[in-house]
Design a protein around this nucleic acid. Structure first.
Length: 652
RNA sequence: GGCGGGGUAGCUCAGAUGGUCAGAGCGCGCGGUUCAUACCCGCGUCGUCGGGGGUUCAAAUCCCUCCCCCGCUACCA
């Protein structure tokens, strides 16, 4: 994954380009931070690193978003791009290229690739007959439809019949499967890899890669009726960055990508299938590793979603950390970086909690790392005037521990095991703390054992120096600060991974003791002061989701009486009901109630019916309405009336 | 329902091919110490390794079965 030896080849790592429909949040930050850590690590090792992130700016959602905001699409995306760039800067993300799909360079490449694949026959024009979801810009097959509606957004779809361009994804299915099976590291983690294999084996369809022409999207070459589909456009950003078809030397140096990180949602369908198929069609080598990391849920394990309003805002989190601890913002940002990569194995889902963050802050950062620095430097000040002593023959006691840590971290980072890399590093920090206790430099000083004292002090500070280097990919500002406090910044010494070894510290260096980096937090205290935080958020959510009275009025609720009920054959959850709602004929309604109610239980019951819901066909059975039932995910109890009410009464 | 991944101490998690595998860190309790941000060090507590059956001299680790959770998918108007 990191490659070996070949000094010519750059280490190329990418984040996805983010769709500019909203602000950066903890999910996008997570991906980007993970990329940044790897990029910094490789830079420290002396690799030529290309780390690209950016924004995906085409598509009708952007046009609509701009219209909603009363802006031109260009002004709209420019504003969001500025937000993204600022966010990454604040999170200490040092990318080498920020790519926007609206750049002329990218547009040209997309058109070139499109034309080339048309010429080679890998993209073909065909009559498309099927359904289309306008808001999602997605073509759907009959089997994809959710009772006639879009499976993504739930809105009605339109039947369309038109010409469109298709990419022969199916042609590459076998080759792709073979590649995945031959290359263990191509897709990670293993659980995703299995999913992808199953997905491909289930049969790949050719991908529709064009849409009806829009002014905002990239035009299909030589066809005024079509624009390039935004996903096809977006994936190619990775090649634009590499200079494909534009700068051969650059491309040779950069491609293929070493690591492409992303959230697990966009791995199987896009990055692990269409994307490599496109590369195969272009005759290009595939990236070494595609990795889909897990999601963050909130402290209660609930998925983050707009409707719940429980999105974690990284900057608000950092702000709270600053308030609680009194640490500097830069260190709080690093603490957040540390937390997200330390708390959960990359690849698995995790839950994000303030308490968890504060707990890590105290236990790992304040107690272990911060305190190691803050106890060691005063020893040097007190006993050797703040000047790093000669190591002497008795030194080097921690050399093996350091070497083992470096080797361990390299192995883990190779596998994208950020968590285990950090665990390995913290074992070294613990070892160093313990070393101070064992050697009792204060005693050595009292006893006048100067040689031993010098050796101990040297080893400790030398080890901290290594820790500063090893921690800096994860916590760059903290690494810098430790470096500064050790006097190495002033001495003009640059960090390098190779110097993370015992004995590299120059005697005579003047240390530069600072204030504690991570002041301890009274966790129970600060959290007790903010009990209303969760409630506030809930209230805010409720407000954000509020509908007008008029909107409510649009829903026609009526009482009804179940006159017939039976199971839908071969369906576990569905019942087909006939409900008298005071109309000439009972309504036929299909309801997902079969798991909790048997048909007989429902007969004669008074229910509440959404009467003006548009008809839908479920399992081939027409449904004209909806029965209300309580239950978050599954219907647990029927909504019924207090007393006997005739069918057909309005429910207000 | 199908496919995939999981269920191991209060919490977060380690534990290829069966035999120091009953663990680590955090938390908690006790004791010690004091260079340090009440820190550090030592000791300790807690688990029927999801339930039940089986194979074996021996199973968290293999087999069967059941329960629960997550992801994808299908039928939740």
């Amino acid at each position: 994954m990191t490659g070996t030896g070949d000094a010519q080849k750059a280490f190329y790592i990418t984040s996805p380009i983010y769709y500019v429909s909203g602000q950066p949040h903890i999910g996008t930050a997570y991906t980007t931070i993970a990329c940044d850590v790897l990029a910094r690590y490789q830079r420290l090792r002396g690799r030529d690193v290309v780390f690209a992130t950016g924004t995906d700016e085409h598509g009708q959602k952007v046009v609509r978003g701009a219209a909603d905001a009363g802006m031109s699409p260009q002004d709209f995306v420019d504003g969001l791009v500025a937000d993204y760039k600022r966010a990454w800067e604040r999170l200490h993300v040092e990318y080498s290229r920020f790519i926007r799909t609206t750049e002329p360079e990218h547009t040209r490449l997309v058109q070139r690739v499109f034309a080339r694949l048309v010429a080679s026959g890998d993209i073909y024009k065909a009559e498309y007959t099927g359904w289309y979801c306008i808001p999602c810009e997605t073509y759907l097959l009959e089997q994809d439809l959710d009772d006639g509606n879009c499976p993504e957004c739930g809105r009605p779809t339109e039947q369309v019949s038109q010409e469109a361009y298709f990419f022969r994804t199916s042609k590459y299915a076998d080759a792709l499967l073979h590649h995945i099976e031959e290359h263990e590291d191509f897709i990670g983690p293993d659980s995703r890899r299995n999913e992808v294999i199953a997905f491909i084996k289930s049969g790949l369809r050719d991908s529709c890669v064009s849409r009806t022409r829009s002014d905002w999207d990239i035009p299909v070459p030589d066809d005024e009726s079509q624009s390039v589909y935004v996903w096809f456009d977006a994936l190619l950003n990775y090649l634009t960055v590499a200079g494909y078809g534009d700068d051969e030397d650059r491309f040779e140096r950069i491609w293929p990508a070493d690591v492409q990180l992303m959230g697990k949602d966009i791995l199987p369908r896009f990055h692990a299938t269409i994307w490599p198929a496109m590369l195969m069609a272009l005759g290009l080598p595939l990236p070494r590793t595609l990795f889909g990391h897990g999601w963050w849920s909130d402290a209660d394990g609930q998925k983050m979603s707009k409707s719940k309003g429980n999105f974690i805002d990284p900057f608000e989190t950092v702000q709270r950390l600053v308030e609680y601890s009194g640490t500097r913002t830069a260190f709080a940002v690093d603490a957040l970086r540390y937390y997200v990569l330390r708390e959960v194995p990359f690849g698995l889902d995790g839950s994000f909690s303030m308490r968890g963050l504060l707990s890590r802050f105290n236990a790992d950062l304040a107690n272990d790392l911060g305190n190691l620095l803050n106890r060691s430097l005063p020893l040097l000040q007190r006993y050797v005037d703040g000047i790093v002593p000669e190591a002497g023959p008795a030194s080097g006691a921690l050399a093996e521990d350091i070497a083992r840590t470096v080797a361990g971290m390299e192995t883990q980072l190779e596998r994208l095991n950020y968590r285990d890399a950090l665990i390995a590093l913290w074992q070294l920090i613990a070892r160093c703390n313990k070393f101070v206790d064992e050697r009792e430099p204060w005693l050595l000083h009292k006893q006048g054992k100067r040689v031993e004292l010098d050796a101990v002090l040297y080893d400790v500070v030398d080890c901290i120096r290594a820790v500063a280097i090893l921690v800096s990919p994860f916590m760059p500002e903290v690494g810098e600060e430790v470096w500064d406090q050790l006097g190495l910044k002033h001495a003009g010494t640059r960090m390098s991974w190779a110097d993370a070894r015992a004995g590299a510290l120059a005697p005579g260096t003047h240390i530069n003791r600072g204030v504690p980096i991570f002041p301890r937090i009274d966790i129970d205290g600060v959290l007790a002061e903010q009990p209303e935080a969760a409630e506030e958020q809930q209230a805010a959510t409720a407000k954000a989701n509020a509908i007008s009275f008029k909107q409510f009025q649009a829903v026609e609720l009526v009482t009804g009486k179940v006159v017939e009920a039976e199971r839908v054959p071969e369906a576990d959850k569905l019942l087909v009901l006939r409900v008298d709602v005071g109309e000439a004929q009972p309504r036929q309604i299909v309801a997902g109630l079969a798991e909790h109610f048997n048909p007989r239980q429902l007969l004669g019951r008074t229910v509440i019916v959404v009467a003006n819901l548009e008809p839908a066909t479920i399992r081939g059975i027409e449904s004209n309405g909806m029965i209300l039932a309580a239950g978050e995910k599954q219907p647990l109890a029927l909504i019924t009336t207090d007393g006997e009410v005739e069918p057909g009464h309005k429910v207000r």
